[in-house]
Amino acid sequence: MKQWYEELFENYAVKYDKESFTQGTIGECDFIEKEIEYNKEAKILDIGCGTGRHSIELAKRGYKVIGIDLSESMLRRAKQKAGEEDVEVKFEKHDARKIPYLDQFDLVIMLCEGGFSLMETDEMNFQILQNAANALKSKGKFIFTTLNGLFPLFNSVKEFLNSEAESGNATYDNNSFDLMTFRDVSKICIEDDLGNQKEIQSVERYYVPSEITWLLKTLNFQPVDIFGAKLGAFSRGDKLSTKDFEMLVIAEK
């Protein structure tokens, strides 16, 4: 049986690129470049690359990037876009829970819920962090965003997501946040690239900063820095607050 995230990202690549939360690519890549001190020799792995927006932008700036994703339709779109932009990115189909790389990358990025926090169990989510750590060389850097567990304690997830959406974007309903598991169950309504209307029940795991810090420290990351993640404007100057839907995590191996 397909998991909800596999069903969601089937034939949803063109529409996905029009979602409001995918519009911050340039600013986010500016931040990434600054974090690796513009080192063009850096090898980058993009976990859960989706339609390749960060991979392609970084490749355009001269970096060697491999983008991996579970969705064949997202990867098809990524390859098509890379061809149109005339940039070279290696896109490969891999499950983030089973990444084949070891000590190969200077930077691993995992942005916009790139697999992490979507998995069925906490153990699977941890496996993704573990694989990212394994893929990094010594002194490598790991930059990712994840859902901020402080947000649903003070705000409505449904109201936030629907207020951010433009016409034609996905809509969210029937949200239910479980305080014991920090999982939000919701109904996502989309029209896919073929014009089919779909209703999918999603289950996403929110994390509090202390959990993320502890998980990464067990994987020998030090230091671990966490900030608020502003769309298209990542910054070390943004102290995480209850108003941030996502947090930006920067860890060094």
Results as ranks from 00 to 15, higher is better:
126 F>D: 00
204 E>A: 03
112 C>S: 14
248 L>H: 07
193 D>P: 13
132 A>M: 04
6 E>R: 11
73 S>Q: 06
178 D>I: 03
234 F>M: 11
239 K>D: 08
143 I>P: 00
120 E>R: 14
111 L>G: 00
75 L>W: 08
252 E>F: 12
203 V>A: 07
63 Y>C: 00
201 Q>G: 00
93 K>Q: 15
59 A>Q: 01
161 L>V: 01
103 D>L: 06
21 F>H: 13
66 I>Y: 02
234 F>D: 04
159 E>I: 07
133 A>N: 12
146 T>N: 13
25 T>I: 15
230 K>A: 09
183 R>L: 04
46 D>K: 04
30 D>M: 09
28 E>R: 11
47 I>E: 02
223 P>R: 06
132 A>I: 01
224 V>N: 06
19 E>G: 01
180 M>D: 14
216 L>T: 01
165 A>G: 10
242 T>D: 12
45 L>H: 07
111 L>D: 01
235 S>D: 12
68 I>W: 03
44 I>L: 05
252 E>R: 13
133 A>F: 07
43 K>C: 04
46 D>F: 07
249 V>Q: 09
150 L>V: 02
122 D>W: 04
145 T>C: 13
215 L>N: 10
3 Q>K: 15
77 R>P: 00
62 G>Q: 09
2 K>S: 12
86 D>Q: 15
209 P>K: 13
223 P>W: 05
77 R>G: 00
246 E>N: 14
214 W>N: 14
168 G>Q: 11
221 F>D: 05
135 A>C: 14
7 E>K: 14
120 E>F: 05
110 M>D: 06
221 F>W: 05
213 T>W: 01
184 D>G: 02
79 K>A: 13
251 A>I: 05
19 E>L: 14
240 L>R: 07
175 N>M: 08
13 A>N: 08
78 A>M: 09
68 I>N: 07
179 L>E: 09
221 F>H: 08
248 L>T: 03
17 D>K: 06
184 D>E: 15
213 T>Y: 08
89 V>R: 00
192 D>V: 05
55 S>H: 11
203 V>P: 00
228 G>T: 09
59 A>R: 01
185 V>R: 14
178 D>P: 00
87 V>D: 02
28 E>D: 15
88 E>D: 14
82 A>E: 08
90 K>D: 14
14 V>D: 12
162 N>C: 10
48 G>P: 10
61 R>I: 05
159 E>D: 15
164 E>T: 12
15 K>D: 05
45 L>K: 04
95 D>R: 11
172 Y>V: 03
246 E>I: 00
49 C>K: 09
180 M>E: 14
